[in-house]
Design a protein around this nucleic acid. Structure first.
Length: 586
RNA sequence: GCGCCUGUAGCUCAGCUGGAUAGAGUACCAGUUUCCGAAACUGGGGGCCACAGGUUCAAGUCCUGUCAGGCGCACCA
């Protein structure tokens, strides 16, 4: 509808210019928007005010000229000039009613479009280090990333959802060593657990599994394990050095094969936990991409070689540095450490190059806002390798601060004190959790009060929307109980009977849905879909309280049943995009 | 110190890429059910859109500065 009005106005304006009734000016993009106030009709156009300056004419005069030249169009019933020069269009009720047919005909496809032209988009999200279970902090990224993906798919992009598994590097060594130490404790060794090790209960669980699988084959006496290890922080030493020495001892005592066995035991256990947690959370992936595979395939070395060829690396103090300052970064970054190991950044360079090589038109990274300083160096590396960095879009998600009532909950993976995503699901459910996460803009700092979400879950907006869906279903159960049935053909033929204010509001809301999907997708803003669904649900509940659907006037009744079926369909479509269920009853 | 994000009703947040009289939920107050589910609906009070300048027909929205809060500035990932 917007599109039709836009072309109409464009046509009239260019006619007026060629007829000399308007000066020779270049036309800006026509803006048509829905009015906030029904007194202003259905759609408003501000073109007269936009042209006022360049045309050197009074905006109301331009508007008058334009409106006078407007041809008769069947779907417009009234055109008015208002305020400083707005042109307000009122549509016929007939055209508004047709949306019901569109919804029913297109069913689950209503709202979809081909805007994306099938272009390939990759969305990488969550990608938390596999050093522990996902906690509620990761939930927001999971909900946001998966809904953005669904929205892009909805508007015709070919979406590839990916999780980058950081299965290499020091943090993973710390995890493996932590598991090993817990395993040694189980076998009766006694010692003080390192302050920088992973202390969560899940580490002990993995150790137990390890013990069940390998018996005491990885056992070494604590005297040997802690031999020549520098002091830990509580003893006045350095906790980083302490854990490093332990890692070195673990590797040399166990040997490569056994250490790898230990390492993979920890990794696999945690990854499989993450996979089931995300699946339970309604978040599915097309690919789990391993950092280690990148290193073992030589991709990291190849990328570094490519940067050397481009003459953007230099050696200093035994390490290799990337000249990211040449591309606007704050400082240069190390890619190869003085000990010969590549950095995480080196892996990430190779990873992004790999993404680009896979032929995605757009690559989207969803990161926690604490990684924002990382963007310039990644983009710099792509530019240095002759890639078009604008193909990479980084979407930042602000932290959700957890509260239990008025009390803020401090979380730390290392200390093992956190509320897991699994616990959140078990307590408030997938639907409420997802809806809650996605209700706020991603760049908005969010307060997540567990007490509120748990104890007063009735106040959670998700129930409000789901109830609207269930209520429609309930009406049809009632219909059946009364021995009646819905006749879609009759209903569609009688849509002109839908003339009350509440019905007009609902028709308008239904018509907005495709615009909402498009807007939410192109702007990466799932929250506007959540808000829309609340608006639609409110329109429905208001209608429900104001009017009966099952009435003696058969034709009116069928028309109303047809309308609420369309409402049910749109709510279901919207909730599905959000990954929230649409229950028939609750 | 530098960079990114945020500041809108008591609280939690929208505000459609600059539009008409700034909105919702919640809380508070007052109402609605012989009738399709009251997890609902109707009405009411409540605001120097952090502050100060600027840009223009028009600023909560864009620019500059100030103040306040969050995050980041590793040879960690």
């Amino acid at each position: 509808m917007k599109q039709q009005l836009t072309t109409l106005i464009n046509q009239v304006l260019s006619d007026l210019i060629s007829q000399g009734k308007l000066p020779q000016i270049t036309l800006p993009e026509i803006q048509i928007e829905r009015t906030k106030d029904k007194a202003h009709g259905d759609f408003a156009c501000n073109i007269a005010m936009m042209l006022a300056r360049t045309a050197k004419m009074n905006p109301r005069q331009i508007a008058t000229t334009l409106v006078d030249a407007l041809p008769e169009v069947e779907f417009i019933t009234k055109v008015e000039i208002a305020g400083p020069g707005f042109i307000n269009f009122t549509l016929t009720s007939y055209s508004a009613q047709q949306i019901v047919k569109d919804v029913l005909n297109q069913a689950e496809n209503f709202g979809k479009s081909q805007l994306g032209l099938g272009k390939k988009v990759q969305v990488e999200f969550v990608s938390a280090n596999p050093t522990g279970p996902l906690h509620v902090g990761h939930g927001r990224g999971a909900a946001y990333g998966s809904v953005v993906s669904s929205l892009l798919a909805e508007v015709g992009f070919d979406v590839h959802r990916e999780y980058y598994v950081n299965d290499a590097g020091r943090q993973m060594d710390i995890l493996a060593t932590s598991v090993w130490l817990r395993y040694l404790s189980l076998l009766g060794e006694s010692f003080t657990f390192p302050s920088n090790g992973y202390k969560g209960d899940y580490v002990a669980d993995i150790a137990q599994t390890l013990k069940n699988n390998v018996g005491d084959s990885l056992l070494h006496s604590s005297n040997v394990v802690f031999k020549a290890v520098s002091a830990d922080e509580p003893q006045g030493g350095d906790k980083e050095k302490h854990i490093n020495d332990l890692i070195i001892n673990a590797k040399s005592l166990l040997g490569e094969e056994a250490y790898r066995q230990l390492f993979d035991c920890g990794l696999n256990s945690i990854i499989s936990g993450i996979k089931t947690d995300l699946a339970d959370f309604g978040t599915d992936y097309d690919e789990w991409f391993s950092e280690r595979s990148l290193m073992e395939s030589g991709s990291v070395d190849t990328a570094i070689e490519q940067l050397k060829q481009a003459d953007v690396l230099y050696e200093k103090e035994g390490a290799w540095w990337f000249k990211s300052t040449d591309y606007g970064d704050e400082k240069d970054r190390v890619v190869v450490r003085d000990n010969g190991q590549t950095t995480y950044f080196a892996s990430d360079i190779a990873y992004h190059l790999n993404k680009f090589d896979r032929g995605f038109d757009t690559v989207i990274d969803v990161w926690g806002s604490d990684h924002h300083g990382y963007i310039p160096r990644v983009k710099a590396s792509l530019t240095a390798m002759n890639q078009d960095e604008s193909r990479l879009k980084v979407l930042l998600v602000q932290f959700a601060v957890l509260y239990r009532g008025a009390e803020k909950i401090a979380m730390s993976t290392r200390s093992g004190q956190f509320v897991t995503l699994k616990e959140l699901q078990q307590e408030i459910g997938k639907d409420a959790a997802r809806f809650f996460y996605v209700l706020r803009g991603a760049d908005q700092h969010m307060d997540f009060d567990l007490e509120l979400a748990k104890s007063q879950s009735n106040d959670n907006p998700v129930y409000y929307v789901q109830y609207a869906h269930a209520r429609v279903c309930s009406v049809f159960r009632q219909l059946t109980e009364r021995g009646l049935s819905w006749d879609q053909t009759v209903g569609e033929a009688q849509l002109s009977r839908l003339t009350t204010r509440h019905e007009a509001d609902l028709l308008t809301s239904l018509a907005r849905y495709p615009e909402i999907i498009t807007s939410a997708a192109v702007n990466y803003t799932p929250h506007i879909l959540a808000h829309y669904l609340m608006d639609l649900a409110r329109d429905f509940h208001t209608y429900y309280n104001a009017q009966h659907f099952i009435v003696d006037d058969i034709e009116l009744s069928q028309a109303r049943l047809t309308l609420i079926t369309a409402v049910k369909q749109v709510i279901k479509n919207g909730l599905t995009v959000l990954g929230v269920s649409a229950p028939e009853s609750m």
